[in-house]
Amino acid sequence: MSKQAPLLVVNDLGHMFSNRGQKVHVFEKCSFEIAPTQFVAVQGASGSGKTTLLLACGGMLAPSSGEIRFQGNDLFTLPSSRRTKIRAVSIGYLFQTLELVPYLDLTANVRIATGVSSSVANQWLDRLGLGDRCRSYPRELSHGQRQRVALARAIAHEPALVIADEPTGNLDSRNSELVFNVLKKYAQDGGSVLMATHEAQPAAFADFVINIENLDLLKAKVR
């Protein structure tokens, strides 16, 4: 484990919801820490709560129990305006549903992130193999290309933590490798990455893996 102060501390996190009067626990007692430069993967079957965990870590979904501290701040006791500001400046989020704006070109889509100029947006698109498509619209791209645009948008404002929900979900092996390398390089350069993945061997590129279906084991291993 890194000796640096942790960037993100997740403590006894649990989330549940009601479904037709029955309480459904998505996950319980989830605890881990992410230090700067760490690349962490969240692994689990479909529906196991990976996206819920990532949304909570990104300050977008209040968990039912536990706490999430980001840069020393308890995210969900902060006023929502402060939380929004932290999220905007220090967290880059790649949604599983991508959430690209259909009527904006790729540069404009990336520029939506805080303080990103057109040239920076184009540089990131270029690094992700879309340098010649900057003036295209999302509808003109394949799903895999759109995923890379969403990654460029999550990373372009150089946040302290990039949260990526299945960033290689529809990519071929060559493009998956490109995305992993970009995220790995980002972590090596000082950023941190928290990524949900369905890859069979996430340990090959991650510093540690959170298996959301086996959280007790994780706690013993990480802390």
């Binding site: 929004t84 999220r87 905007a88 704006v101 259909p102 303080g115």
Partner: peptide, 11 residues
């Protein structure tokens, strides 16, 4: 929704 996404992303 696109506006809310933009706000979430820091716009």
């Amino acid at each position: 929704r696109p506006e809310r996404v933009a706000l979430t992303l820091g716009a």
